[in-house]
């Protein structure tokens, strides 16, 4: 069987793992987003202990391998009586990891908004919350969008780590095919093609959204 015939035969089976890969990615991204918001708020507007806590979280998470974080949650926590199934542990590890990166993305996006915008809102009588809701976030999300998409695409790829603890997603299905056919190269090539298509699809979609949400008249990056 040539490579092409192999792909025709096994690619659909491996591609079925996309559903689980996307579930992992979407839930992790959402968890990351929800966790990132208080982290950013604490970092930028919080009192000193909150700022330190937020910064420490970001540093520790970014300074340790995701695989180790996954193992800590899946294999480590049961020793203190906290047990998660493989799917939950994977979403937790990926999501809490992504939170640190998303927090940094939003922090720099908010920092990119000129001071004059805050001053204008303040001069008009906006509360801090109204300034955040109507002035800061709509602009920050636009600034952050390319980096957020990048983070989403990174999560698609990193979700492959969940296969190690038994989640049957794209990579795990490629493992099965490799073991069954003894043709590891073709099996993982198929997985690579599926990942690439997924990532490309989301990157392209994001470019479309970016163009649609661009501030009219804005000439910068």
């Amino acid at each position: 069987m040539g490579v092409f015939d192999f792909l025709v035969a096994y690619l659909p089976f491996i591609a079925q793992g996309s559903t689980v890969t996307l579930q992992l990615t979407l839930f992790s991204f959402a968890l990351g987003f929800v966790t990132a918001m208080p982290l950013v708020a604490a970092n930028l507007f919080g009192v000193l202990p909150a700022r330190l806590l937020s910064r420490s979280y970001v540093e520790v998470v970014r300074g340790t391998p995701l695989l180790v974080q996954l193992f800590l949650i899946y294999f480590g926590l049961p020793s203190i009586g906290i047990k998660f199934d493989a799917m939950t542990a994977s979403i937790l590890a990926l999501g809490l990891n992504s939170a640190a990166y998303q927090a940094e993305i939003f922090r720099s996006a908010i920092k990119g908004i000129p001071e004059s915008q805050f001053l204008a809102a303040e001069s008009l009588g906006f509360t801090k919350l109204q300034t955040f809701r109507y002035v800061v976030m709509p602009q920050a999300v636009r600034i952050a969008l390319p980096a957020l998409v990048n983070e989403f695409v990174t999560l698609i790829k990193e979700s492959a780590l969940a296969s190690i603890i038994g989640i049957v997603e794209i990579t795990r299905r490629a493992d099965y095919v490799a073991a069954y056919t003894f043709r590891a190269f073709e099996a993982y090539l198929a997985a690579a093609i599926i990942y690439f298509v997924l990532c490309y699809f989301f990157s392209y979609g994001a470019r479309y959204i970016e163009a649609k949400t661009r501030i009219p008249g804005y000439k910068g990056g």
Partner: peptide, 21 residues
């Protein structure tokens, strides 16, 4: 109450400071 202060005053800045979005 700062909001009451701001309700009585209008401020126009050198660089307009409109909300671009």
């Amino acid at each position: 109450d700062l909001r009451k202060v701001r309700a009585k005053t209008g401020f126009v800045f050198q660089s307009y400071n409109l909300f671009p979005h």
